[in-house]
Simulated assay, not measured.
Amino acid sequence: MDYEKKIINPRREGLDEELLANCAEMTNVLSVSAVFSDALNRDGVMDHEIKFRSTNQPFIGTALTVKLKPGDIVDCLPIFDIAKPGDVVVIDANGTPNTSIWGGLMSGLARAAGVVGAVVDGSVRDTDEAKVLGFPVASRSVSPRAAHSAYTGRTEPIEINVPVTCGGQIVHPGDLVVADELGVTVVPYDLLAEVYPAAAQLAENEKKVREEILNGATVEQLLAKFGRI
């Protein structure tokens, strides 16, 4: 059966750029991945194996999704034809543990394109170089073995801007990706207008709770005032 080996869909249109910018400003919130998960009623959290492998630098941005084929993992260089500042590259590499499809040069190219981070359900390498670049990469594993693209020249089969599964979560192009040293939370874009104000309010409440704790408030007082801890 014939099938298209390279599918690059256009970017999702009609995104609320002001809303996305407001979300991105929350990178300085403590435990921001947990805050957004709480605002989603504990939903949206990727598997705990998806964790930072380079720098512990929180990032928040919109998903630029990549789907690779099991057993034929290639470099995802075509993303740089459409990557925009504020993107998060989210790669479904089927959890492949020993073949890396993201390395130091990819981190450099991504940083130059304004990409704020990468999340890979699979393996990455050159994490030392990513640290030097200050580019955050989260993945399921780390391995020195490269994909075959450098030897074969192939960058297909690949699908870009399609729904993918990453860390047990379905991610659509344009969804919000929130990552920090705790893990990664995905917020469906269609829910973002509702989730963002809830997350912002939770962050503000937690800031107030911390201040109350430092001022000697008891658990009973905190529960009476805020309803949760």
Rank of each mutant, 00 (worst) to 15 (best):
E194H: 15
Q169R: 15
D190E: 08
L222P: 01
Q221Y: 07
T185M: 02
I213G: 10
T218L: 13
L214V: 14
P197M: 02
K207R: 15
G174R: 00
L222H: 08
L192E: 02
K207V: 14
A217P: 10
G168Y: 11
F226K: 05
E211M: 14
V186I: 15
A203M: 07
V171C: 12
L176T: 03
N205H: 01
V187C: 00
L192P: 00
G167I: 05
K207M: 15
V177M: 12
Q201E: 15
E181M: 15
K207L: 14
L176K: 04
A200T: 09
H172Y: 12
T185L: 01
L182D: 02
L222N: 03
G227W: 12
A203Y: 05
G168N: 13
P197F: 03
P188K: 05
V184K: 05
A199P: 08
R210H: 06
A198Q: 11
V178F: 05
A224K: 15
G227T: 11
D180L: 08
A179T: 08
A198C: 08
L222T: 06
V219M: 14
Q201C: 11
V177G: 07
Y196D: 01
K208M: 09
G216I: 05
R210L: 11
A217L: 11
E206H: 05
E206C: 04
L222Y: 06
V186S: 04
P173E: 09
A200K: 15
E220R: 04
Q169T: 13
A179D: 05
T185S: 03
R210S: 07
N205V: 02
V186H: 04
V184Q: 07
I170G: 01
E220I: 04
L223F: 14
V209G: 09
R210D: 09
G183C: 05
L191Y: 06
L176D: 03
N215T: 03
E204G: 01
A199G: 06
L223T: 08
L191H: 10
V219C: 09
Y196P: 00
V209W: 08
R210V: 08
L191K: 14
A217V: 10
N205R: 06
Y196Q: 07
N215Y: 04
V171F: 12
N215E: 10
D175L: 08
G168E: 12
H172I: 00
L182Y: 03
L192N: 01
E206S: 02
A198M: 08
A217Y: 10
